[in-house]
Design a protein around this nucleic acid. Structure first.
Length: 152
DNA sequence: GCCAACGTTGGC
DNA sequence: GCCAACGTTGGC
């Protein structure tokens, strides 16, 4: 079982929005970066777990945990010209972008803020805490996962 | 709102 | 294939 971190801007899709979603499950749509796509498509497996991270907000940080409940399948929004995620180069025959389904597992009682994460010496190698990192899907090691769980 | 970082595009 | 220009991300 692998561990991940998924970034979302709460104005676009927050963990509270996930809680309100049918069956507390959603497709993780709109990833339009190849490295992130490759993680989703090739490496996400059912029963993997991921931190839910709120970015571009007042207190950026980890707000909860989701379970991967369905492995990668094509992102249908890439086929929809009316969607902001439309990509004319992605087709049903040859899809370029993928989603996985995730289900809410836990909302933390508090936000584990980015500044706290940066202060934890066990997390210094996480790409998340490095300046200028923009990847929205990131692998998390088992050691990092457990170190963060202890901070909740 | 600013701007550093970095991915993508497109001219050559 | 190089790389300048441009667009986006996202912390602050």
């Amino acid at each position: 079982m692998a561990y991940w971190l998924l970034k979302s801007e709460p104005l676009t899709f927050s963990i509270e929005a996930l809680k309100q979603s049918p069956n507390q499950t959603t497709a993780w749509e709109g990833v339009r970066n190849y490295q992130a796509r490759n993680f989703l498509r090739d490496d996400f497996k059912v029963n993997d777990q991921a931190f839910f991270y709120h970015s571009n907000t007042e207190v950026p940080g980890i707000v909860g945990i989701v379970d991967v409940v369905k492995a990668a399948y094509p992102d249908r929004f890439a086929f929809d010209p009316k969607s902001e995620y439309f990509d004319e180069k992605s087709s049903a025959d040859n899809p370029r972008w993928f989603v996985v389904d995730v289900k809410l597992k836990q909302i933390f009682p508090r936000v584990i803020s980015l500044s706290e994460l940066k202060e934890n010496p066990k997390l210094v190698n996480m790409p998340l805490v490095r300046r200028g990192n923009r990847l929205s899907v990131l692998p998390v090691t088992q050691e990092e996962w457990h170190a963060i769980i202890k901070m909740v």
